[in-house]
Simulated assay, not measured.
Amino acid sequence: MRKPRRPARTVRQRFTALYGALFLLSAVGLLAVTYLVASGPSSTSRAAPMGEQPYQPSALAAAQEHIARLQAELAQAEAHQSRQLLLGSAVALAVMAVVSIVLGRFVAGRVLRPLRAITATTRRISADNLHERLAVNGPADEVKDLADTIDGLLERLEGSFAAQRRFVADASHELRTPLATMRASLDVAVGKPVPVPEQTVSLAGRLRTELDQVDRLLDGLLVLARAQHGAMVDREAVSLGAAVTAALEARAAGIEAKSLTVRTDLGDVWTRGSHTLLSRMVDNVIDNAVRHNGAGGWIRVAVTAAAGTALLVVETGGDVLDQEQVALLARPFQRLGQDRVHSGDGSGLGLAIVAAVAAAHGGDLDLSARPAGGLRVAVTLPAAGAPE
């Protein structure tokens, strides 16, 4: 049986305990010195006045009795004084214990305040706002060195992310030129007036199919790079219901070819963002549901709004899937095993683009395997009001 994990103590708690212990030890030392000084031995001497006559025996006995009585009273007073001093010391020690904890927590909070500010700012910075910096002001101490080190790391990360996105976009653009050249060469070779061998025509058809696949892949890379970059200047109100309707109408032929049953529940739900990217996101979700579906299957699409969020849910039937593999589908070029029915013409970027577009608009993508079989795709976006 595993032992329950004890909650970890924070740095502020450790500093509070340390400072409180130091303050308390100082108070204990001060009270101890005061008590020792106050309760130290005192000696009194009494000299007989000059010229006095020696006491007679009876007078001497009376004086000794009087001295003994005075000494007893003095001892009783000293004991009472010691008890009062001890009680006062205990009360002062209890008060100092509380004061030490309060002062220790206050001092620890002041010491850790710059670190809390650094932590909060670092948590707020993500891949979409790597341009932000901590910019901690203050003396050149260990805290400022830490903040400057983090700022340098963010600057290097920003440069790396920008270089990666720039490379994907540039490579995709540059590759379109040779693709267009190859497609034109095929059209010229097949379109010659002389009779073209049948094998050449068949080969040209297969090459056109592969070129179309590469073209879709490059287009997907461009959309993915743009979504991950997050630079959207064409923000506008977008109706998710209308986008779903357009996507279903565009794939009516594929739905009819597989005899799929489509059930929809499309509410009047709006979000705000790039119309191009959001339309591509909805197209990919619907396209994924049609492509990875068996003949005679079904698709259920729902668009709802609740608590300031817009929700697009697309469910499909099929075999029971592994949730661990399903969770990886949002990564580029990830597919399920061979048991899942698919046409094989996908680029492997469909759901990755969906996740990137949703994240760029402040939402997220949730993929889950249905217990009865099939896949559930849920996209959450911030809701917006309908345009006037």
Score class of each variant (00 low, 15 high):
206 R>S: 14
232 M>F: 11
244 V>T: 04
128 D>C: 04
67 I>A: 10
61 A>E: 15
281 M>N: 04
15 F>Y: 11
351 L>N: 06
320 V>P: 04
282 V>T: 02
82 S>F: 15
122 T>F: 13
153 L>A: 12
100 S>D: 02
281 M>Q: 11
240 L>T: 02
187 D>I: 15
90 A>W: 12
285 V>S: 05
156 R>A: 15
329 L>W: 06
116 R>H: 10
39 S>E: 08
130 L>S: 07
51 G>K: 07
170 D>R: 13
334 Q>A: 15
306 A>C: 08
190 V>D: 00
317 G>E: 00
332 P>G: 06
237 A>G: 10
233 V>R: 10
45 S>F: 14
283 D>W: 02
350 G>C: 10
336 L>Q: 14
51 G>P: 01
210 E>G: 11
51 G>T: 02
131 H>Q: 13
206 R>F: 05
108 A>F: 00
288 N>W: 09
71 Q>Y: 06
163 A>V: 06
117 A>K: 15
85 L>M: 10
377 V>H: 03
285 V>D: 12
337 G>W: 14
291 R>P: 01
273 G>A: 05
12 R>P: 01
182 M>N: 07
328 L>Y: 05
10 T>Y: 00
239 S>V: 04
89 S>T: 08
151 D>V: 04
244 V>W: 11
387 P>H: 01
92 A>L: 14
160 S>G: 12
174 E>C: 00
114 P>T: 07
230 G>S: 05
97 A>P: 03
46 R>F: 15
77 A>G: 11
29 G>D: 03
217 L>K: 13
169 A>N: 14
54 P>D: 08
45 S>E: 03
152 G>L: 04
332 P>T: 09
107 V>D: 04
